[in-house]
Nucleic acid binder design. Structure first.
Lengths: 339, 339
DNA sequence: TCAAGTTACGAAAGCGGTTGCGTGAATTTG
DNA sequence: CAAATTCACGCAACCGCTTTCGTAACTTGA
């Protein structure tokens, strides 16, 4: 592998000049720069990453925190898309990233601490945000840079995050159902520990209120843990005396589950029940009927997160920004007008 | 952040001694080591990663190649699990990894080349293996270390890879159906460009042959691209005069699709049609009925791949090994005995 | 024409580690 | 007990790049 002095020798200049040519320093003459550049391409020179990092005290690297264990298995495709987005942006900006995960919170925290102390990373992107997370607590206490994908909880109001406007999205989705004549609308969510789940519920409630539709607490169901089509709560909801004619779910997985359950009970979707959901994952295409779902642009969330963290690495005193990535309702077959 | 000389000063020794203590060099006395270790923990010292990399000429980093664009969207959960496994092992071994992806092959290759020349990585894990891949071609021509997840194609017989024994798995799965009395068994696969898809087909055929069941070419269907439950080929298969009573599919996505299609045609699973599939993804739990599927241990595939590459980074003249990760058939509701 | 000011570049000191070599002290050997 | 080893550690060069500072050479103005 060619080094800077190889290039320098070939071009008949000093290493400093080569270095300055790379960063396009003004005090190198046009003609010299050209000579140096020619030598660089001739040797296929690329600056050594470690050496540069060491000299500039910037590792140009950040960690990507994947939730410990499979604490929410059914967000996988979301995670992968986000990771892909992060990778895309990184590669483009010549930054490095590294996946960090662990069997449990303890292990995760250990790794994070070691990475920070070893100067391996400049910051972190967290693919999740949770109440009372030990890692976040540590990062805050040490003043280490991080950006969240998904809104920070209230206690982290000054964190950098990128997210969708989940309240608005859910409101629009619910309004879509209302516009189709539905009034008895239910809401099914996964763990409400997640902020997005909370927000989507808020949006749902907001839409009802705006349209003067009274809230029915029996219509709101929360399914914790890994779902299963034998889920009792969903069955209860569907066998209610005055069951809903439409349901908003917090993600495609639940929607799929809901549809299965409905079939089991002899209800047809969308004829007897309209279903609207979030994430626009592969499931939206696969389920039968295909789901009306909100595309949350996971790839873009990843790209923006990477962009933010790189920005903040290079400009440490930038203010904490909040980025909202647009969503898009994709109408398919699972919602129909009330007859 | 504490440096090696801070530690040296505090312990009253030279930096060399601290360094040797870290690597547990024999020529440092027990007592001195203890003094140094005490100083290290006192200062919370962790060796600077860049400096170490530069000095040892080992970046302890490798790239993870994600297929360009979403060229097979419906393997997402597999990819994420594998990535998680890689991350897990890396963190444990104090290695770094970096996600590499791109909009197209060209871009991907560019990034790979730049990483190699900049000494950013020591090698790569490829999350896919494909015929005639430009990246693999480059890696081979330059003699750069890489390990494949998924079997190498024949032309790469000396590559390092980790994979399942897909032939055997498919054979077992098919035999399961045969043992339940089925003789008219079909096979549906995604793109046969993938090696795993080929192997699963081979296993299926092998099982038939072994049981002297004649092959029926009408029973073998290949669905390229992103599937959709309106898929004509699947419908054709199911409306055949002498339609199969059981079908093996190359993944859960296709199985789900198959079930939807079957319902559309008035066929009940498993009563009228048994379905067996691969990957044991979330879909296996979500579909109705739940799928009998082969768990391919994606996490373990990732762990082994990471283990292999780290091994080869540290022992460059190790021979190319092939690791087979065990599979496990998970029986659920989608397969039943032929009445 | 000469002092002052630019311009264009090189020398060298880091960045934070690792490691070959040298050496005084402690230990063993004859 | 002197000589020969062995032990335990420090010195300093090096990994490849960045950047401050210094300085020739060249330009400018009076």
């Amino acid at each position: 592998m060619a080094t800077i002095s190889d290039v320098a020798k070939l071009a008949g200049v000093s290493p400093s000049t080569v270095s300055r040519t790379c960063s396009n320093h003004p005090s190198i003459s046009r003609r010299t720069k050209e000579r140096v550049r020619k030598a660089m391409t001739e040797l296929g020179y690329e600056p050594n990453f470690q050496a540069t990092s060491l000299a500039t005290q910037n590792s140009k690297t950040f960690g990507i925190l994947l939730p410990s264990s499979d604490y929410d298995v059914y967000q996988k495709s979301f995670y992968l898309e986000a990771i892909r987005g992060i990778g895309l942006f990184c590669n483009q900006k010549q930054y490095m990233n590294t996946i960090i995960t662990g069997q449990n919170d303890e292990e995760l925290l250990q790794t994070v601490q070691s990475m920070v102390k070893g100067g391996r990373v400049e910051g972190f992107i967290l693919l999740y945000s949770r109440h009372d997370d030990p890692v976040i607590k540590y990062l805050n206490s040490e003043g280490i840079l991080y950006v969240l994908i998904g809104k920070a909880s209230k206690d982290l109001s000054d964190a950098i995050y990128v997210d969708n406007d989940n309240i608005q999205a859910s409101r629009e989705l619910t309004n879509l159902l209302i516009s189709k004549g539905h009034k008895k609308i239910g809401y099914i969510s996964s763990d409400s520990e997640y902020n997005f789940s909370q927000d989507r519920k808020s949006g749902y409630m907001l839409a009802l209120t705006e349209n003067s539709i009274p809230m029915n607490s029996q219509y709101i169901v929360e399914c914790a843990g890994i779902p299963d089509y034998n889920n009792g709560k969903i069955k209860e909801l569907l066998t209610l005396e005055d069951r809903p004619t439409a349901i908003v779910t917090s993600d495609d997985v639940l929607a799929t589950l809901l549809i299965s359950t409905a079939y089991t009970l002899g209800l047809k979707v969308p004829d007897d029940l309209s279903v609207a959901s979030f994430n626009d994952s592969l499931l939206s295409h696969l389920s039968h009927p295909q789901l009306t779902s909100v595309d949350i642009n996971a790839l873009q969330l990843g790209i923006e997160a990477a962009s933010q963290i790189i920005n903040h690495i290079e400009n440490p005193d930038l203010l904490a920004t909040k980025i909202i990535v647009p969503h898009r309702i994709v109408e398919r077959e699972s919602c129909t007008s009330l007859k």
